[in-house]
């Protein structure tokens, strides 16, 4: 069965102008997000995950700028949208939940008011009582007690607030939810419950979920596919089972081997990745990972490998997997 594509990202680059130079935070990234999938996006702090997520909604503010690329959402290039269409797009078609919902919820607005307002901004002709009705259905769907509709954000626990944010993201039947470290500050049991809920929501609503996190185990728990970023590059993307079983890119290999595992049946030694992540104002030439790579070839420090599909649905950006095209590229 051919999976339907919701978003096609082509050659997307984002840079920030800073005092010390241009930060290349997302560099020529291309891949697709399928309808109804959970895609986990992982990578070290500063590798560009949040920048990428925000760029998908064109939410990059100065000093940042989308310097190249196309984002085709359901067949439309949102790079061509004017301000009004963009505003309608955010919220109705795609929305974002962040790590700290307190910053995105209005402290003097009750839960019901948040939801009703979201509906009425995008669908001004919806009557108050209909909007309230839909809000109630959503709140119940998320396992929040009806009495919470009248609560203010500060009266809710962290997990509860995250669910309210998720509800706001879903109430207009968005096709894409971007969750940027949405479970990161939550306790494990609360996180596990939110994970269950997000999975159910995907199953019931068919929404696509881009799960941005540095919690690799959570991605193993929830996602259908995993995308790995390193220093602004997408270095590997593929099926969750395949990538965890036999990661191809040396960075993915090191990353997965350094994740602590609570089970006692696994290796007791964590992989110790040498070196530090690069400075993105002056990223290493060639493969950005080469200074830390245990398998680097001479060419790795000279030329940038391209993201190549090495197996159906499994792409890797690494010279180890492009020996044939190596010659093609050098002429």
């Amino acid at each position: 069965m051919e999976k339907e594509k919701l978003v096609k990202i082509r050659d997307l680059s984002v840079s920030y102008q800073t005092r010390i130079g241009t930060v290349s935070a997302v560099d020529h990234v291309s891949f697709d997000i399928y309808k109804g999938e959970i895609l986990g996006l992982v990578g070290e702090s500063g590798c560009g995950k949040s920048t990428f997520g925000k760029a998908l909604l064109r939410m990059i503010d100065p000093p940042g700028e989308i310097s190249s690329g196309e984002i085709i959402f359901n067949g439309e290039n949102i790079m061509e949208y004017d301000y009004d269409r963009l505003r309608d797009f955010r919220g109705r078609r795609a929305s974002m939940i962040f790590q700290d919902p307190m910053t995105s919820l209005n402290p003097v607005q009750r839960v019901d008011e948040h939801l009703i307002e979201t509906i009425q901004v995008h669908e001004p002709r919806t009557k108050q009582n209909l909007a309230l009705q839909r809000s109630k259905v959503m709140i119940e769907r998320l396992g929040i007690g009806m009495e919470r509709l009248l609560s203010y954000p500060h009266q809710l626990s962290g997990g509860m607030r995250q669910r309210v944010m998720t509800g706001i993201g879903l109430i207009l039947n968005a096709d894409l939810i971007i969750a940027d470290e949405a479970t990161t500050s939550l306790d494990v049991i609360v996180e596990a419950k939110l994970a269950d809920q997000l999975r159910e929501i995907r199953n019931d609503f068919g929404v696509s979920l881009l799960l941005i996190t540095h919690n690799i185990a959570l991605v193993a728990e929830m996602a259908d596919r995993i995308a790995v970023m390193y220093a602004g590059h997408l270095v590997e993307i593929g099926d969750i089972y395949k990538v965890f079983e036999k990661p191809k890119h040396p960075y993915t290999q090191g990353l997965l081997a350094s994740v602590p595992n609570i089970r006692f049946d696994t290796k007791e030694q964590l992989y110790k990745m040498p070196g530090e992540p690069p400075n993105l104002t002056h990223p290493p030439l060639g493969c950005r990972f080469h200074p830390r790579c245990p398998h680097a070839l001479p060419i790795c420090s000279q030329r940038e490998p391209s993201l190549l599909e090495i197996e159906a649905g499994w792409s890797v950006q690494c010279w180890l997997y492009q020996k044939q095209s190596n010659e093609e590229r050098s002429d």
């Binding site: 494990v188 596990a192 193993a220 965890f244 089970r263």
Partner: peptide
């Protein structure tokens, strides 16, 4: 509740 970094061992 602790997620395991192995998709074949989901909770």
């Amino acid at each position: 509740a602790v997620p395991v970094p192995n998709p074949r061992k989901r909770r």
